[in-house]
Design a protein around this nucleic acid. Structure first.
Lengths: 227, 227
DNA sequence: GCATGATTAAAACAATTGTTTTAAACAAGC
DNA sequence: GCTTGTTTAAAACAATTGTTTTAATCATGC
Protein backbone atom coordinates (compact mmCIF):
# COMPACT_ATOMS: atom_id res chain seq x y z
CA UNK A 1 0.00 0.00 0.00
CA UNK A 2 1.93 3.04 -1.21
CA UNK A 3 1.74 6.25 0.70
CA UNK A 4 0.12 9.29 -0.87
CA UNK A 5 2.61 11.45 -2.69
CA UNK A 6 4.04 14.06 -0.45
CA UNK A 7 3.01 17.62 -0.93
CA UNK A 8 5.64 20.14 -1.90
CA UNK A 9 6.12 22.85 0.73
CA UNK A 10 3.56 25.62 0.38
CA UNK A 11 4.91 28.87 -0.97
CA UNK A 12 4.04 31.02 2.02
CA UNK A 13 4.95 28.67 4.83
CA UNK A 14 7.89 28.96 7.14
CA UNK A 15 11.06 27.87 5.37
CA UNK A 16 11.72 24.23 6.01
CA UNK A 17 14.47 23.75 8.53
CA UNK A 18 17.50 21.77 7.48
CA UNK A 19 17.51 18.25 8.70
CA UNK A 20 19.54 19.03 11.78
CA UNK A 21 17.49 22.14 12.44
CA UNK A 22 14.05 20.66 12.86
CA UNK A 23 14.54 19.88 16.46
CA UNK A 24 15.81 23.37 17.20
CA UNK A 25 13.00 24.95 15.22
CA UNK A 26 10.48 22.95 17.17
CA UNK A 27 12.06 23.99 20.44
CA UNK A 28 11.92 27.67 19.48
CA UNK A 29 8.39 27.45 18.16
CA UNK A 30 7.24 25.57 21.22
CA UNK A 31 8.79 28.15 23.51
CA UNK A 32 6.87 30.91 21.82
CA UNK A 33 3.59 29.01 21.78
CA UNK A 34 3.87 27.87 25.40
CA UNK A 35 4.68 31.42 26.48
CA UNK A 36 1.69 32.80 24.58
CA UNK A 37 -0.84 30.11 25.24
CA UNK A 38 0.35 28.19 28.25
CA UNK A 39 0.68 24.43 28.15
CA UNK A 40 -3.00 23.53 28.10
CA UNK A 41 -4.04 25.71 25.20
CA UNK A 42 -0.88 25.19 23.20
CA UNK A 43 -1.55 22.83 20.31
CA UNK A 44 1.05 20.59 18.81
CA UNK A 45 -0.25 21.45 15.35
CA UNK A 46 0.42 25.14 15.97
CA UNK A 47 3.91 24.40 17.18
CA UNK A 48 4.68 22.20 14.19
CA UNK A 49 3.31 24.74 11.77
CA UNK A 50 5.25 27.54 13.37
CA UNK A 51 8.39 25.43 13.10
CA UNK A 52 7.77 24.52 9.48
CA UNK A 53 7.68 20.86 10.45
CA UNK A 54 5.19 18.04 10.52
CA UNK A 55 3.24 17.34 13.67
CA UNK A 56 4.71 13.82 13.92
CA UNK A 57 8.14 15.37 14.36
CA UNK A 58 7.24 16.41 17.87
CA UNK A 59 6.77 12.84 18.91
CA UNK A 60 9.80 11.76 16.96
CA UNK A 61 12.20 14.33 18.44
CA UNK A 62 10.75 14.82 21.90
CA UNK A 63 8.40 11.95 22.59
CA UNK A 64 5.31 14.11 22.91
CA UNK A 65 3.86 17.42 23.94
CA UNK A 66 4.62 17.09 27.63
CA UNK A 67 8.23 16.13 27.10
CA UNK A 68 8.59 19.04 24.70
CA UNK A 69 7.27 21.37 27.37
CA UNK A 70 9.73 20.05 29.92
CA UNK A 71 12.54 20.46 27.43
CA UNK A 72 11.47 24.04 26.78
CA UNK A 73 11.59 24.78 30.50
CA UNK A 74 14.95 23.05 30.85
CA UNK A 75 16.35 24.88 27.88
CA UNK A 76 15.13 28.29 29.04
CA UNK A 77 16.38 27.61 32.53
CA UNK A 78 19.77 26.68 31.13
CA UNK A 79 19.88 29.87 29.14
CA UNK A 80 19.24 31.81 32.30
CA UNK A 81 21.42 29.94 34.75
CA UNK A 82 24.52 31.27 33.07
CA UNK A 83 23.49 34.83 33.61
CA UNK A 84 22.31 36.20 36.91
CA UNK A 85 20.47 39.45 36.63
CA UNK A 86 22.33 41.15 39.40
CA UNK A 87 25.90 40.09 38.78
CA UNK A 88 26.99 43.54 37.73
CA UNK A 89 24.62 45.13 40.16
CA UNK A 90 26.32 43.37 43.05
CA UNK A 91 29.55 45.06 42.10
CA UNK A 92 28.25 48.50 42.68
CA UNK A 93 29.85 50.34 45.51
CA UNK A 94 26.82 51.17 47.59
CA UNK A 95 24.04 48.90 48.75
CA UNK A 96 21.45 51.51 47.77
CA UNK A 97 22.78 51.67 44.28
CA UNK A 98 22.88 47.91 44.17
CA UNK A 99 19.24 47.72 45.09
CA UNK A 100 18.24 50.32 42.53
CA UNK A 101 20.11 48.45 39.84
CA UNK A 102 18.66 45.12 40.90
CA UNK A 103 15.09 46.40 40.85
CA UNK A 104 15.66 47.96 37.47
CA UNK A 105 17.14 44.76 36.08
CA UNK A 106 14.40 42.61 37.56
CA UNK A 107 11.55 44.77 36.32
CA UNK A 108 13.04 45.23 32.90
CA UNK A 109 13.45 41.48 32.57
CA UNK A 110 9.85 40.93 33.58
CA UNK A 111 8.55 43.54 31.16
CA UNK A 112 10.81 42.75 28.23
CA UNK A 113 9.07 42.14 24.94
CA UNK A 114 11.58 39.56 23.79
CA UNK A 115 13.00 36.30 25.03
CA UNK A 116 14.40 37.86 28.15
CA UNK A 117 10.92 37.60 29.61
CA UNK A 118 10.36 33.98 28.60
CA UNK A 119 11.38 32.37 31.85
CA UNK A 120 9.33 34.83 33.85
CA UNK A 121 6.29 34.33 31.65
CA UNK A 122 6.59 30.57 31.83
CA UNK A 123 6.95 30.91 35.59
CA UNK A 124 3.71 32.88 35.79
CA UNK A 125 1.86 30.08 34.08
CA UNK A 126 3.56 27.43 36.19
CA UNK A 127 2.54 29.22 39.37
CA UNK A 128 -1.11 29.04 38.43
CA UNK A 129 -1.00 25.46 37.16
CA UNK A 130 2.08 23.91 38.67
CA UNK A 131 3.78 20.95 37.02
CA UNK A 132 6.59 19.01 38.64
CA UNK A 133 9.00 21.14 36.63
CA UNK A 134 8.21 24.18 38.76
CA UNK A 135 10.28 22.97 41.66
CA UNK A 136 13.36 22.60 39.50
CA UNK A 137 12.78 25.90 37.76
CA UNK A 138 12.54 27.70 41.08
CA UNK A 139 15.54 25.93 42.57
CA UNK A 140 17.81 26.39 39.57
CA UNK A 141 16.78 29.78 38.24
CA UNK A 142 14.73 31.76 40.67
CA UNK A 143 16.29 30.88 43.99
CA UNK A 144 19.83 31.92 43.05
CA UNK A 145 18.54 35.30 41.92
CA UNK A 146 16.47 35.57 45.04
CA UNK A 147 19.52 34.89 47.15
CA UNK A 148 21.45 37.63 45.42
CA UNK A 149 18.72 40.14 46.04
CA UNK A 150 18.49 38.94 49.63
CA UNK A 151 22.17 39.63 50.09
CA UNK A 152 21.64 43.23 49.02
CA UNK A 153 18.66 43.53 51.34
CA UNK A 154 20.66 42.07 54.20
CA UNK A 155 23.36 44.69 53.66
CA UNK A 156 20.75 47.40 53.80
CA UNK A 157 19.06 46.02 56.91
CA UNK A 158 22.30 45.57 58.80
CA UNK A 159 23.58 42.87 61.10
CA UNK A 160 20.59 42.87 63.43
CA UNK A 161 18.15 41.56 60.85
CA UNK A 162 17.31 37.87 61.12
CA UNK A 163 16.83 35.64 58.12
CA UNK A 164 13.05 35.80 58.20
CA UNK A 165 13.04 39.55 58.14
CA UNK A 166 15.45 39.62 55.23
CA UNK A 167 13.38 37.09 53.35
CA UNK A 168 10.12 38.92 53.92
CA UNK A 169 11.58 42.21 52.84
CA UNK A 170 13.03 40.61 49.74
CA UNK A 171 9.65 39.11 48.94
CA UNK A 172 8.10 42.55 49.33
CA UNK A 173 10.43 43.84 46.65
CA UNK A 174 10.05 40.89 44.31
CA UNK A 175 6.26 41.02 44.63
CA UNK A 176 6.15 44.65 43.53
CA UNK A 177 8.19 43.88 40.43
CA UNK A 178 6.45 40.64 39.56
CA UNK A 179 3.04 42.20 39.96
CA UNK A 180 3.54 44.37 36.89
CA UNK A 181 4.07 41.25 34.83
CA UNK A 182 1.33 38.95 36.06
CA UNK A 183 -1.29 41.57 36.75
CA UNK A 184 -0.73 43.63 33.64
CA UNK A 185 -4.38 43.68 32.48
CA UNK A 186 -5.40 44.84 35.94
CA UNK A 187 -2.80 47.58 36.11
CA UNK A 188 -3.67 48.72 32.61
CA UNK A 189 -7.22 49.23 33.75
CA UNK A 190 -6.46 50.85 37.09
CA UNK A 191 -3.51 52.96 35.97
CA UNK A 192 -3.76 53.07 32.22
CA UNK A 193 -0.44 54.69 31.33
CA UNK A 194 1.83 52.54 33.46
CA UNK A 195 3.28 50.65 30.52
CA UNK A 196 3.65 53.64 28.22
CA UNK A 197 7.06 54.62 26.99
CA UNK A 198 9.08 55.60 30.03
CA UNK A 199 6.53 53.98 32.31
CA UNK A 200 8.64 51.00 33.34
CA UNK A 201 11.56 53.26 34.26
CA UNK A 202 9.25 55.29 36.47
CA UNK A 203 7.95 52.11 38.05
CA UNK A 204 11.44 50.84 38.77
CA UNK A 205 12.36 54.16 40.38
CA UNK A 206 9.23 54.09 42.45
CA UNK A 207 9.66 50.50 43.60
CA UNK A 208 13.28 51.09 44.53
CA UNK A 209 12.43 54.26 46.43
CA UNK A 210 9.43 52.74 48.20
CA UNK A 211 11.46 49.70 49.17
CA UNK A 212 14.59 51.59 50.25
CA UNK A 213 12.56 53.78 52.53
CA UNK A 214 10.97 50.73 54.10
CA UNK A 215 14.31 49.01 54.55
CA UNK A 216 15.91 52.05 56.09
CA UNK A 217 13.06 52.44 58.54
CA UNK A 218 13.27 48.76 59.42
CA UNK A 219 16.99 49.09 60.01
CA UNK A 220 16.43 52.01 62.33
CA UNK A 221 13.87 50.02 64.26
CA UNK A 222 16.18 47.06 64.56
CA UNK A 223 19.07 49.18 65.74
CA UNK A 224 16.89 51.01 68.22
CA UNK A 225 15.89 47.65 69.61
CA UNK A 226 12.24 48.16 68.77
CA UNK A 227 11.94 45.10 66.58
CA UNK B 1 -38.11 4.70 19.55
CA UNK B 2 -38.47 4.71 23.32
CA UNK B 3 -35.68 6.13 25.42
CA UNK B 4 -33.63 3.80 27.59
CA UNK B 5 -34.95 3.50 31.11
CA UNK B 6 -33.45 6.06 33.36
CA UNK B 7 -30.99 4.98 35.95
CA UNK B 8 -31.89 5.52 39.59
CA UNK B 9 -29.50 7.91 41.33
CA UNK B 10 -26.35 6.15 42.50
CA UNK B 11 -26.09 5.65 46.21
CA UNK B 12 -22.91 7.60 46.77
CA UNK B 13 -23.55 10.54 44.47
CA UNK B 14 -24.36 14.05 45.51
CA UNK B 15 -27.98 14.28 46.64
CA UNK B 16 -30.15 15.30 43.76
CA UNK B 17 -31.15 18.91 43.95
CA UNK B 18 -34.83 19.78 44.01
CA UNK B 19 -36.19 20.98 40.74
CA UNK B 20 -35.69 24.63 41.51
CA UNK B 21 -32.26 23.92 42.96
CA UNK B 22 -30.51 22.42 39.99
CA UNK B 23 -29.57 25.74 38.57
CA UNK B 24 -28.18 26.92 41.88
CA UNK B 25 -26.32 23.67 42.42
CA UNK B 26 -24.75 23.99 39.01
CA UNK B 27 -23.72 27.54 39.75
CA UNK B 28 -22.07 26.52 43.02
CA UNK B 29 -20.38 23.51 41.50
CA UNK B 30 -19.16 25.51 38.56
CA UNK B 31 -17.72 28.16 40.84
CA UNK B 32 -15.68 25.59 42.69
CA UNK B 33 -14.50 23.84 39.54
CA UNK B 34 -13.59 27.06 37.74
CA UNK B 35 -11.70 28.25 40.80
CA UNK B 36 -9.79 24.99 41.04
CA UNK B 37 -9.20 24.27 37.40
CA UNK B 38 -9.63 27.50 35.55
CA UNK B 39 -11.97 27.78 32.61
CA UNK B 40 -9.95 25.76 30.10
CA UNK B 41 -9.43 22.67 32.19
CA UNK B 42 -12.83 22.75 33.82
CA UNK B 43 -15.01 20.05 32.32
CA UNK B 44 -18.76 20.30 32.10
CA UNK B 45 -19.02 16.68 33.14
CA UNK B 46 -17.16 17.41 36.37
CA UNK B 47 -19.41 20.35 37.09
CA UNK B 48 -22.56 18.34 36.42
CA UNK B 49 -21.36 15.49 38.55
CA UNK B 50 -20.42 17.78 41.37
CA UNK B 51 -23.85 19.35 41.20
CA UNK B 52 -25.63 16.01 41.11
CA UNK B 53 -27.12 16.92 37.76
CA UNK B 54 -26.92 15.73 34.21
CA UNK B 55 -24.47 17.33 31.82
CA UNK B 56 -27.26 18.48 29.50
CA UNK B 57 -28.59 20.64 32.34
CA UNK B 58 -25.77 23.06 31.82
CA UNK B 59 -26.91 23.81 28.33
CA UNK B 60 -30.52 23.86 29.40
CA UNK B 61 -30.04 26.32 32.27
CA UNK B 62 -27.14 28.40 31.05
CA UNK B 63 -26.76 27.80 27.34
CA UNK B 64 -23.30 26.32 27.59
CA UNK B 65 -19.99 26.26 29.38
CA UNK B 66 -18.95 29.77 28.48
CA UNK B 67 -22.22 31.35 29.54
CA UNK B 68 -22.02 29.40 32.80
CA UNK B 69 -18.57 30.82 33.40
CA UNK B 70 -19.78 34.36 32.78
CA UNK B 71 -22.67 33.78 35.14
CA UNK B 72 -20.29 32.53 37.81
CA UNK B 73 -18.21 35.68 37.47
CA UNK B 74 -21.31 37.87 37.53
CA UNK B 75 -22.66 36.05 40.53
CA UNK B 76 -19.43 36.22 42.49
CA UNK B 77 -19.00 39.86 41.61
CA UNK B 78 -22.50 40.58 42.84
CA UNK B 79 -21.76 38.83 46.09
CA UNK B 80 -18.78 41.04 46.57
CA UNK B 81 -20.17 44.35 45.41
CA UNK B 82 -22.39 44.55 48.47
CA UNK B 83 -19.47 44.26 50.80
CA UNK B 84 -16.32 46.29 50.55
CA UNK B 85 -13.42 44.91 52.48
CA UNK B 86 -12.43 48.15 54.07
CA UNK B 87 -15.77 49.60 55.07
CA UNK B 88 -15.16 49.18 58.76
CA UNK B 89 -11.45 49.83 58.32
CA UNK B 90 -12.23 53.26 56.93
CA UNK B 91 -14.02 54.11 60.13
CA UNK B 92 -10.95 53.74 62.24
CA UNK B 93 -9.68 56.88 63.81
CA UNK B 94 -6.16 56.93 62.48
CA UNK B 95 -4.95 56.51 58.93
CA UNK B 96 -2.23 54.16 60.13
CA UNK B 97 -4.72 51.94 61.81
CA UNK B 98 -6.88 52.09 58.74
CA UNK B 99 -4.03 50.88 56.60
CA UNK B 100 -3.15 48.07 58.96
CA UNK B 101 -6.75 46.93 59.00
CA UNK B 102 -7.04 47.20 55.25
CA UNK B 103 -3.92 45.16 54.62
CA UNK B 104 -5.07 42.54 57.08
CA UNK B 105 -8.50 42.36 55.47
CA UNK B 106 -7.07 42.21 51.97
CA UNK B 107 -4.52 39.52 52.72
CA UNK B 108 -6.94 37.42 54.70
CA UNK B 109 -9.41 37.59 51.86
CA UNK B 110 -6.74 36.51 49.41
CA UNK B 111 -5.58 33.64 51.59
CA UNK B 112 -8.98 32.46 52.78
CA UNK B 113 -9.68 28.79 52.27
CA UNK B 114 -13.36 29.33 51.63
CA UNK B 115 -15.50 31.33 49.25
CA UNK B 116 -14.12 34.62 50.44
CA UNK B 117 -11.18 33.95 48.16
CA UNK B 118 -13.24 32.98 45.11
CA UNK B 119 -13.27 36.34 43.40
CA UNK B 120 -9.56 36.77 43.96
CA UNK B 121 -8.79 33.30 42.65
CA UNK B 122 -10.96 33.79 39.60
CA UNK B 123 -9.23 37.11 39.07
CA UNK B 124 -5.82 35.42 39.11
CA UNK B 125 -6.89 33.10 36.33
CA UNK B 126 -8.51 35.92 34.37
CA UNK B 127 -5.30 37.93 34.56
CA UNK B 128 -3.36 35.14 32.93
CA UNK B 129 -5.98 34.33 30.29
CA UNK B 130 -8.22 37.35 30.04
CA UNK B 131 -11.78 37.05 28.82
CA UNK B 132 -14.01 40.03 28.11
CA UNK B 133 -15.46 39.55 31.57
CA UNK B 134 -12.25 40.76 33.19
CA UNK B 135 -12.93 44.39 32.41
CA UNK B 136 -16.30 44.25 34.15
CA UNK B 137 -14.92 42.32 37.10
CA UNK B 138 -12.21 44.89 37.63
CA UNK B 139 -14.52 47.84 37.16
CA UNK B 140 -17.26 46.54 39.43
CA UNK B 141 -15.37 44.72 42.13
CA UNK B 142 -11.71 45.54 42.18
CA UNK B 143 -11.67 49.21 41.31
CA UNK B 144 -14.01 50.29 44.14
CA UNK B 145 -11.85 48.47 46.65
CA UNK B 146 -8.77 49.95 45.08
CA UNK B 147 -10.22 53.41 45.42
CA UNK B 148 -10.89 52.85 49.09
CA UNK B 149 -7.34 51.77 49.74
CA UNK B 150 -6.13 54.72 47.69
CA UNK B 151 -8.07 57.04 49.92
CA UNK B 152 -6.27 55.70 52.96
CA UNK B 153 -2.94 56.00 51.17
CA UNK B 154 -3.75 59.57 50.16
CA UNK B 155 -4.44 60.43 53.80
CA UNK B 156 -1.09 59.01 54.76
CA UNK B 157 0.81 60.77 51.99
CA UNK B 158 -0.77 64.13 52.69
CA UNK B 159 -2.01 66.88 50.43
CA UNK B 160 1.16 67.22 48.39
CA UNK B 161 0.90 63.80 46.78
CA UNK B 162 -0.41 63.76 43.20
CA UNK B 163 -2.72 61.08 41.90
CA UNK B 164 0.00 59.08 40.21
CA UNK B 165 2.05 58.85 43.36
CA UNK B 166 -0.97 57.73 45.32
CA UNK B 167 -1.81 55.14 42.70
CA UNK B 168 1.68 53.75 42.53
CA UNK B 169 1.96 53.49 46.27
CA UNK B 170 -1.39 51.76 46.44
CA UNK B 171 -0.26 49.32 43.77
CA UNK B 172 2.87 48.65 45.81
CA UNK B 173 0.69 47.60 48.71
CA UNK B 174 -1.78 45.58 46.65
CA UNK B 175 1.05 43.79 44.88
CA UNK B 176 2.58 42.62 48.15
CA UNK B 177 -0.74 41.18 49.30
CA UNK B 178 -1.72 39.67 45.97
CA UNK B 179 1.69 38.07 45.53
CA UNK B 180 1.05 35.66 48.39
CA UNK B 181 -2.00 34.38 46.56
CA UNK B 182 -0.79 34.00 43.01
CA UNK B 183 2.80 33.06 43.77
CA UNK B 184 2.04 30.65 46.58
CA UNK B 185 4.01 27.71 45.17
CA UNK B 186 7.03 29.99 44.75
CA UNK B 187 6.79 31.42 48.24
CA UNK B 188 6.35 27.95 49.70
CA UNK B 189 9.62 26.94 48.13
CA UNK B 190 11.58 30.08 48.98
CA UNK B 191 10.15 30.64 52.45
CA UNK B 192 8.58 27.35 53.41
CA UNK B 193 6.78 28.35 56.59
CA UNK B 194 5.05 31.45 55.32
CA UNK B 195 1.62 29.87 55.19
CA UNK B 196 1.88 28.00 58.48
CA UNK B 197 -0.50 28.77 61.27
CA UNK B 198 0.07 32.36 62.23
CA UNK B 199 2.01 32.97 59.06
CA UNK B 200 -0.57 35.13 57.34
CA UNK B 201 -0.91 37.37 60.37
CA UNK B 202 2.85 37.86 60.39
CA UNK B 203 2.77 38.64 56.69
CA UNK B 204 0.02 41.20 57.12
CA UNK B 205 1.95 42.88 59.91
CA UNK B 206 5.08 42.91 57.83
CA UNK B 207 3.36 44.30 54.72
CA UNK B 208 1.64 47.01 56.72
CA UNK B 209 4.85 47.98 58.47
CA UNK B 210 6.94 47.93 55.29
CA UNK B 211 4.36 50.00 53.45
CA UNK B 212 3.73 52.49 56.25
CA UNK B 213 7.41 53.19 56.52
CA UNK B 214 7.62 53.80 52.81
CA UNK B 215 4.58 56.07 52.82
CA UNK B 216 5.86 58.08 55.75
CA UNK B 217 9.21 58.56 54.06
CA UNK B 218 7.48 59.60 50.85
CA UNK B 219 5.38 62.08 52.76
CA UNK B 220 8.46 63.60 54.34
CA UNK B 221 10.07 63.90 50.93
CA UNK B 222 7.00 65.58 49.50
CA UNK B 223 6.74 68.03 52.33
CA UNK B 224 10.44 68.82 52.19
CA UNK B 225 9.97 69.59 48.51
CA UNK B 226 12.32 66.85 47.43
CA UNK B 227 9.82 65.03 45.29
C1' DG C 1 25.07 1.26 -5.76
C1' DC C 2 23.42 -0.96 -1.72
C1' DA C 3 22.30 -1.30 3.09
C1' DT C 4 21.12 0.80 7.08
C1' DG C 5 19.45 4.02 10.17
C1' DA C 6 17.50 8.63 10.67
C1' DT C 7 13.97 11.73 9.53
C1' DT C 8 9.80 13.18 7.55
C1' DA C 9 4.80 13.49 6.08
C1' DA C 10 0.16 11.99 5.51
C1' DA C 11 -3.27 9.30 7.19
C1' DA C 12 -5.39 7.05 10.72
C1' DC C 13 -6.50 6.29 15.39
C1' DA C 14 -8.42 6.70 20.03
C1' DA C 15 -9.85 9.52 23.43
C1' DT C 16 -11.94 13.53 24.96
C1' DT C 17 -14.98 17.42 25.04
C1' DG C 18 -18.92 20.58 24.68
C1' DT C 19 -23.14 20.43 22.41
C1' DT C 20 -27.35 18.57 20.50
C1' DT C 21 -31.17 15.46 20.14
C1' DT C 22 -34.97 13.16 21.87
C1' DA C 23 -38.18 11.30 24.71
C1' DA C 24 -39.33 10.48 29.43
C1' DA C 25 -40.59 12.46 33.69
C1' DC C 26 -42.35 16.09 36.27
C1' DA C 27 -45.27 20.05 37.77
C1' DA C 28 -48.97 23.10 37.47
C1' DG C 29 -53.35 24.64 35.92
C1' DC C 30 -57.84 23.73 34.28
C1' DG D 1 -57.34 13.20 34.02
C1' DC D 2 -55.62 15.93 30.32
C1' DT D 3 -52.81 19.51 28.45
C1' DT D 4 -48.97 22.19 28.39
C1' DG D 5 -44.61 23.76 29.46
C1' DT D 6 -40.48 22.73 32.13
C1' DT D 7 -36.83 19.88 33.36
C1' DT D 8 -34.12 15.91 33.10
C1' DA D 9 -31.21 11.96 31.39
C1' DA D 10 -29.12 9.01 28.09
C1' DA D 11 -27.41 8.63 23.76
C1' DA D 12 -25.50 10.49 19.88
C1' DC D 13 -22.94 13.83 17.44
C1' DA D 14 -19.17 16.64 15.60
C1' DA D 15 -15.05 18.61 16.34
C1' DT D 16 -10.68 18.58 18.28
C1' DT D 17 -6.43 16.86 20.07
C1' DG D 18 -2.17 14.28 20.96
C1' DT D 19 -0.41 10.07 19.46
C1' DT D 20 0.58 6.24 16.42
C1' DT D 21 1.33 3.98 12.11
C1' DT D 22 3.49 3.40 7.88
C1' DA D 23 6.06 4.08 4.05
C1' DA D 24 8.71 7.41 1.53
C1' DT D 25 12.75 10.14 1.53
C1' DC D 26 17.18 11.31 2.96
C1' DA D 27 22.01 10.78 4.54
C1' DT D 28 25.91 8.18 5.54
C1' DG D 29 29.19 4.56 5.28
C1' DC D 30 31.06 0.68 2.95
Amino acid sequence: MPKPSRTPPPAGAAPLPSREGTRAALLDAATAVFVEQGYDLARVRDIAERAGANVAAINYHFGGKEALYLEVLRHQAGERIERYPFADAAQLAGAEQALRAAVTALLSRFLAEDQRAFVAKLLMRELLSPTPALRTLVADVIAPQFRQLSAIVARLLGPKADTETVTRCTLSIVSQCMFYLFARPLVEQLAPHSYDSGGPALLATHIAQFSLAALQARRRDLEAGDA
